[in-house]
């Protein structure tokens, strides 16, 4: 074996990186991406833009000329929502959120699992402002460690709150929408500025029943939320977002977000599943806490 081959084999026992080892970095990247405002749209030179307008006008003229007999139906006013629209699903979820108290316990527990049931991330936060989490970067995945901060966030890196702040949020949908918009200086991506905060409130934040309900109602007024269809565990909704749309499954009966491919997290990040995958989300108050793992043991 020559010098080069010896170097090549040095540390070759380092295994292929497991997908789990990448989750932390992916979350941080998605967070940065979500915080970055959309670049300004590419603008065509004036001359080309004018040429485009002319072309569109010409096309319209052709359409008018060739289909004189097709009267355009004016949109009906006061149309009822289609039986199963995204808005309807959100309103049904709002109603069940209102009558479903969050339960009790000493820890606000947020657990995300992979499709196969393996742990993705997990955190426990107490009312007096302490948080533990796992996995801890660079440690065995079963290790529970203290998180540096126990604050909650409405959107990636914006809108920092305590549990008490969350509980004091407005319970009227319009007022809530306005308040969270004020708390977020920069809209995430090109979304309605209220979108990410409302998503946080229905997904990972410990919002009381009336605030959650208001968040669902407010979300029903945000354009772009579309229904994909009925899936296992609930209704799948989708929000187009460039080439990485947000998909989430809401159970209208329990009002919980049960699965998603991307979500703002309690800690001000964005969690994203690999490729086309979803992760499973469980949230709630609990007294069940595995305890901190001592350094060096696991």
């Amino acid at each position: 074996m020559n010098d080069f081959d010896l170097i090549k084999h040095l540390r070759s026992e380092v295994g292929e990186s497991e997908p789990d080892a990448l989750n932390g970095a992916r979350e941080r990247l998605l967070t940065v991406m979500a915080r970055t405002p959309e670049p300004r749209r590419f603008r065509l030179p004036v001359k080309l833009r004018l040429a485009g307008v002319v072309a569109v006008a010409a096309a319209a003229a052709v359409v008018i000329a060739t289909s004189p007999a097709a009267p355009v139906k004016p949109p009906a006013t006061g149309d009822a929502l289609p039986p199963v629209s995204a808005q309807n699903i959100l309103l049904v979820a709002a109603a069940s959120a209102e009558r479903t108290p969050l339960g009790s316990g000493a820890y606000w527990h947020v657990r995300k699992e992979k499709d196969d049931g393996g742990l993705f991330t997990e955190s426990w936060t107490t009312r007096d402002g302490q948080r533990w989490m796992r996995p801890v970067p660079g440690r065995d995945r079963s290790v529970v460690g203290k998180a540096p901060s126990a604050r909650f966030w409405l959107a990636p890196g914006q809108g920092e709150l305590s549990i008490q702040d969350i509980e004091a949020l407005p319970t009227d949908p319009e007022a809530l929408k306005q308040r969270v918009t004020e708390m977020i200086p920069t809209a995430v991506d090109h979304h309605d500025p209220a979108f990410f905060p409302l998503l946080s409130l229905i997904a990972e934040l410990p919002a009381p029943a009336k605030v959650r309900s208001a968040a669902f109602r407010a979300l029903a007024t945000v354009p772009d939320v579309q229904r994909v269809g009925t899936v296992e565990g609930g209704e799948e909704l989708m929000v187009p977002d460039g080439d990485q749309e947000i998909r989430l499954v809401v159970d209208p009966e329990t009002s919980r977000v049960v699965r998603a491919n991307r979500l703002p997290t309690v800690g001000g990040g964005v969690a994203g599943a690999n490729g086309e995958h979803f992760f499973k989300l469980t949230t709630g108050w609990t007294d069940d806490f595995p305890g901190v793992t001592e350094r060096g043991k696991s």
Binding site: V14, E16, A21
Partner: peptide, 21 residues
Amino acid sequence: AAVLHRYAVRRLGPEHAEDVL
């Protein structure tokens, strides 16, 4: 990411690799 992560582990060890990635 997986390939780059392994490279970072080989150069710096698992504790730094996630941050570096």
